[in-house]
Design a protein around this nucleic acid. Structure first.
Lengths: 212, 212, 212, 212
DNA sequence: TATGAATGAGTCTTCATTCAT
DNA sequence: AATGAATGAAGACTCATTCAT
């Protein structure tokens, strides 16, 4: 069960849900291009072809819209992490799969991810806390796989936290340049990254791990 | 010659210069904590203990202040890249030195870097262009080193651009978590990163490159 | 014939009438607690458990709802004044009875009266005029009784208008504190007020008027 | 020391203070005529001949303006009550003096008083509490005088609380009709009210108390 | 009867900036 | 150098009301 958001709101009609989703997606694109704070409600209205009142009928508030975009990303990212865990495999394979999943989300939701990675400081109060938590959860998944690899001897004796941060930076940073329309697919890029990273932290003398 | 900014402004007194610098540093901290758009001039005045008129006497405009912060970072980063180039050495050594320098700037100017990496979309017009250019310049330095390593056979036959992006992500991302007060110094972290990265892109069969 | 409102509207079904009345009463409570301007249509919908469209089906407009509340109060107040006039009796008795009736309305319709005395400036145009007129009518009833008392020698030679205003203030003000659930009933309070007032304006030397 | 407001705000220049006061007075008139909620900031700007920004430079917020108006009234009312207490005299004299003082404030600050008595529900949070408290303080002054009169035998054995409410209603209600420009001065009206009230609650058989 | 999506003028408030002092 | 009053466009958001369903 993905969903990170609260569920105590009134049930909405399917039509409302669909429009809501469309608004989230459209707005994510605007936020990604102009920035959250720099984007006015009026711009959002224009982009969504809706009056102010109607827009608010769907979004509740500008920040709730931001939250919805965050949710979209985190739901997808955690879902992909879950799938990796369920699939199992060696630490190398799992790390590689995590990268695959992460870059896949980045290509499928470039705008949402941009907003997620750039505008999280705009979240206030417990909302901010909530997302810091979910983000930390994901980071721990990466750490766990690294730790497992260290324990099993597949990886050298690296610091899992620091190494996870290196891995996360390498992959997350792709939101700035990875486009779905480039010559390389998310999967291609993830492969190259896995090559570098897994070789980089591999046990000395262990060759052949290039065959993931 | 560092300075990226325009030089056609009137010469200012040393006192003005000192105050100007202090305002840039103080404001960088505020921007880093609250965000550029979310920070009002009034907050800046309070942080700098100055009235609006006096503040404007120093900063010109809010965006010029942002530019000054950007300049501070890029000047330092390019300076460190220049030093690496002048020092010379093998591609591995140079790449390692670049990482050293980059993380060093991140620890010495955490607020400025935060602003630089987070608020660049707030720059408008040719200002934005200018910094995109300077940033690209730095990226090309990394690419060049990688290309040199590939050519020399020190590195495997990786795509320099893609690999540079991986390297940049790994290092730049540190602005989110690298603090000067942690157990690991910038130099320590850079060492671990270099270990991973250089081994990761090393030519198969080439061991011993752990001795940077 | 009570009804102060216009009579040219289409006849409505009894069910409509009942619902309409219920809405008026419920809304009066909300207006009394939150204020007319501070209460939004949405709040009214929630309080009445009705959608916007349905609510408008009954109320016509927010101001018409306010008018209906006003009508409710004025109808009752004028009705009680009529009964007093029909009952006849000495000026003292009539004044006492007017007070009885007025405080009775205030306890029976505390919310409506609150709205009536507090939100009359929200009425616009001829509506405002209309209610000012009806209110003035009631005030004249009080003045008439006082004048009669002066003429008959029951009361001292007071200024009827000024004295009426004193009497009205004393009684109307009770809407702020008189609750049906207190230890004193409206009738009790009215008795005490009548004691004070009738003695206060009584002809010097005339004792025994405590036996109303 | 009157002042009911908090004092922890930055000291302002005399010029600011003067303008601030003028704005309070002007705005009180507008609020009294149109109602607090019905008056927009734009109207306030027009009435004060100031732009929005400049207006906010003085008022802080619409509600703070309302608070300032309330303070003005309560400061004056409590001041007059203090003077009455200091002057001393018989309960009858003190009650009469309280009425004098109250109606005097009402005529000198008709707009402020209108707002005070009509718009207090617009105050929120602890502000509302604060004023309820100050108002209650004044009411207790009246009750005390009544109690003293009952104890001393000057007054009949009335319920002080209920009688105070009667007295307050009679006097407060004058904000609706008492104008400084009428034929009767505040002092005249207060005299008539005192005649009625003091006679009305006087000990049976005690004549001659008309000579206050 | 009833729903709730839509309107768009309106709400209060803050913005970066200027300028007389 | 510095102050802080003033500007007025723009900020996010709510309003009473309408209308297709």
């Amino acid at each position: 069960m993905p969903r990170g958001g609260a569920e105590d709101e009134p049930r909405r009609s399917p039509k409302w849900q669909a429009r809501h989703q469309a608004i989230i997606d459209t707005s994510a694109r605007v936020f990604a291009r102009r920035g959250y704070h720099a984007t006015g409600i009026t711009e959002l209205c224009a982009a969504n072809d809706l009056g102010k009142g109607a827009l608010y009928h769907y979004i509740g508030s500008k920040e709730e819209l931001l939250v919805a975009i965050h949710d979209r990303v985190m739901d997808e990212v955690m879902l992909s992490a879950d799938r990796v865990a369920q699939a199992g495999g060696s630490p190398s394979e799992q790390l590689s799969n995590l990268g695959d999943g992460l870059l896949d989300v980045i290509t499928r939701y470039p705008d949402h991810v941009w907003v997620f990675l750039h505008e999280f400081p705009a979240l206030t109060g417990e909302r901010a806390e909530q997302f810091r938590g979910r983000r930390r959860d994901y980071e721990r998944r990466v750490e766990s796989v690294l730790q497992a690899g260290v324990d099993s001897g597949d990886f050298a004796d690296v610091d899992p936290r620091l190494t996870a941060l290196a891995w996360l930076g390498m992959h997350n940073y792709a939101y700035l340049w990875l486009k779905g329309d480039g010559p390389l697919s998310a999967r291609d890029v993830a492969g190259r990254f896995a090559d570098i990273f897994i070789l980089g932290i591999g046990r000395p003398g262990t060759e052949g791990r290039r065959a993931r």
